[in-house]
């Protein structure tokens, strides 16, 4: 078995610029899909997470239903739904990119909503008492007292979910959206060099995911320095 690394040298511009960053005539792009999906998904996730936490059942039950539905179906299926359903409903085809982004936001918001809920519930009840007793409204309490503490507790699971979103964008290739995996498929079929191509693909995904997890560790130590932590980190040793 012989390797021909020349195909990477010859195609890296297309792969990285077009595939990863979405700069080129095809649009799309892994990061151009992943980053808005994370941002919009988080916003929807906060709404869903907070809805789940209210005592008003007509708000919390639909949120529970939403989470249970989207956690119970595969992402590929949701992408297909949007791909086939949106033209049925609106009567016109949307670009691949918009369909993929919509599917990602709706799907990931279910997971992110659960992370937000767990984060808010990790804040001691006494904080709610203190904030409400001082005359803050529910919204002010959430914004200034609860969410800043909840986000700190959420960072590890949030970054894990963001890495999952980043890697899952490869599924957008099934509806033909141009992103890293799709670009690699095109090159590998043209050059008939699948092994080199997919190894390169793995390396690029890994570098991006690893950078994210390194960044999260730095963010975690910056946002919750020792003087803010009331409890020491538990370490298990043998």
């Amino acid at each position: 078995m012989s390797f021909d690394w020349g195909i990477i040298a010859g195609n890296w511009k297309f792969l990285l610029l077009q595939g990863l960053f979405g700069i080129g005539s095809f649009g799309g792009g892994t990061l151009r899909l992943a980053i808005p999906a994370m941002v919009l998904g988080s916003i929807l996730g906060v709404v869903i997470g907070l809805c789940r936490l209210t005592h008003r059942r007509w708000i919390s039950y639909p949120a529970v239903l939403y989470v249970e539905i989207f956690r119970g179906v595969p992402l590929v299926m949701v992408i297909f739904w949007f791909w086939f359903l949106i033209p049925q409903i609106t009567g016109q085809r949307l670009p691949d990119y918009s369909v993929a982004l919509a599917a990602f936001v709706v799907f990931e918001a279910a997971y992110l909503g659960e992370i937000v809920r767990a984060g808010v519930q990790s804040v001691p009840r006494g904080q709610v008492d203190a904030a409400l007793a001082s005359g803050l409204t529910y919204g002010e309490m959430m914004l200034h007292v609860i969410l800043p503490q909840a986000i700190r507790n959420m960072i590890p699971s949030l970054v894990t979910q963001f890495i999952v979103i980043f890697k899952d964008t490869s599924l957008a290739s099934i509806i033909g959206m141009m992103e890293l995996t799709k670009a690699a498929q095109i090159v590998s079929q043209r050059e008939i060099r699948p092994f080199e191509m997919y190894l390169f693909l793995a390396v690029v995904y890994w570098i991006c995911a690893y950078s994210m997890s390194r960044f999260s560790r730095r963010l975690d130590s910056r946002i919750s320095p020792d003087h803010v932590q009331s409890t020491r980190v538990l370490r298990l040793s043998s």
Binding site: G126, A130, L132, A133, S134, Q149, S230
Partner: peptide, 20 residues
């Protein structure tokens, strides 16, 4: 209720200061 609560100070057993 929020206006009324603003007139009532409360101190708790566990202090409940905002740690951040």
């Amino acid at each position: 209720l929020t206006a009324l609560r603003a007139e009532i100070g409360m101190v708790f057993q566990q202090f409940n200061l905002y740690p951040h």
